[in-house]
Computed example of a mutant assay.
Amino acid sequence: MAEPYYRADSEDGDRIDDPSEDALFLMIGDLDRRGNTFLVVRPDEDDPPWSASVTLRPEADGGGYEVVRRIAEAYETVTTADAHGIAHDLTRWSAARPHPGRPAGT
């Protein structure tokens, strides 16, 4: 089996290698306030050049999710309540990032 290009890890210890949009949607849906408040998507390597996180926002701040995408030292943060949209966006965004060992153009 090929090495994964990236992975999604949740606070409660779940890990999915090369997660599909559906898998990310399910992981986002599994977030809760009892100890599984975030997940991180990143290359499967030490010191990754990019990452994204999805965190539950406090109810007092309107709930929903905060999504932070990082490339090198640049960060972009958005808030939304649309778990489907987050999963779709992160799938496309992650696929567009460089992955060591992946053939160019894939």
Results as ranks from 00 to 15, higher is better:
Val54Glu: 00
Thr55Ser: 14
Asp17His: 08
Tyr65Cys: 01
Gly101Tyr: 06
His99Leu: 04
Ala87Pro: 01
Asp17Thr: 04
Ile71Val: 13
Tyr5Cys: 03
Arg34Ala: 10
Ala8Leu: 14
Ser94Asp: 05
Glu3Met: 07
Ala2Ser: 14
Tyr65Asn: 01
Ala104Lys: 12
Arg15Val: 14
Asp47Gly: 02
Arg92Trp: 05
Pro49Met: 05
Glu59Phe: 10
Met27Leu: 15
Leu90Ser: 01
Trp93Val: 08
His84Trp: 12
Ala23Gly: 15
Asp89Gln: 13
Gly105Ala: 08
Gly62Ala: 06
Ala96Leu: 11
Ile86Leu: 09
Pro49Ala: 14
Thr55Val: 08
Gly62Gln: 09
Arg102Phe: 06
Met27Arg: 10
Asp47Met: 07
Glu45Pro: 01
Val68Thr: 15
Thr106Ser: 12
Ala23Arg: 07
Leu24Asn: 01
Gly35Ala: 05
Ala104Ser: 13
Pro98Arg: 08
Leu90Glu: 00
Pro48Lys: 07
Ser94Pro: 05
Ala104Glu: 13
Asp14Phe: 09
Trp93Phe: 09
Asp17Arg: 05
Met1Val: 12
Leu31Asp: 04
Pro103Glu: 13
Pro58Cys: 04
Tyr65Asp: 00
Ala72Trp: 04
Thr106Val: 15
His99Glu: 05
Asp12Tyr: 00
Pro43Asp: 10
Phe25Leu: 15
Asp9Pro: 00
Gly29Val: 07
Ser10Gly: 07
Ile28Leu: 03
Asp47Tyr: 11
Phe25Asp: 09
His88Pro: 01
Val40Gly: 02
Val41Ala: 03
Val40Asp: 07
Arg102Met: 14
Arg57Ser: 08
Pro43Glu: 09
Ala2His: 09
Asn36His: 10
His84Pro: 06
Met27Asp: 02
His84Ser: 11
Glu76Lys: 08
Val40Leu: 11
Ser10Glu: 05
Ile16Trp: 08
Ala23Leu: 02
Ile71Thr: 10
Arg70Trp: 02
Gly35Tyr: 06
Glu11Met: 13
Gly13Tyr: 02
Leu39Ile: 04
Ala2Thr: 13
Gly101His: 08
Ser94Gln: 06
Ala95Asn: 13
Thr79Phe: 03
Arg42Met: 11
Asp12Asn: 15
Leu26His: 12
Glu21Thr: 07
Pro4Phe: 02
Val54Lys: 00
Glu21Asn: 06
Glu66Asn: 02
Gly62Arg: 08
Leu56Val: 01
Ser94Glu: 03
Phe38Lys: 05
Ala87Ile: 04
Asp32Tyr: 02
Asp32Phe: 03
Asp17Ala: 13
Gly105Glu: 10
Asp22Gln: 15
Glu59Gly: 09
Asp22Glu: 14
Arg15His: 03
Ser51Ala: 12
Tyr75His: 13
Gly62Pro: 01
Ala74Met: 04
Arg102Thr: 07
Arg57Met: 07
Ser51Gln: 13
Gly64Asn: 03
Arg102Trp: 06
Leu39Trp: 01
Arg15Cys: 14
Leu26Cys: 07
Ala60Ile: 12
Arg57Lys: 11
Arg34Lys: 12
Tyr75Thr: 11
Glu73Asp: 14
Ile86Ser: 00
Ser10His: 02
Glu73Pro: 01
His84Phe: 12
Thr91Leu: 05
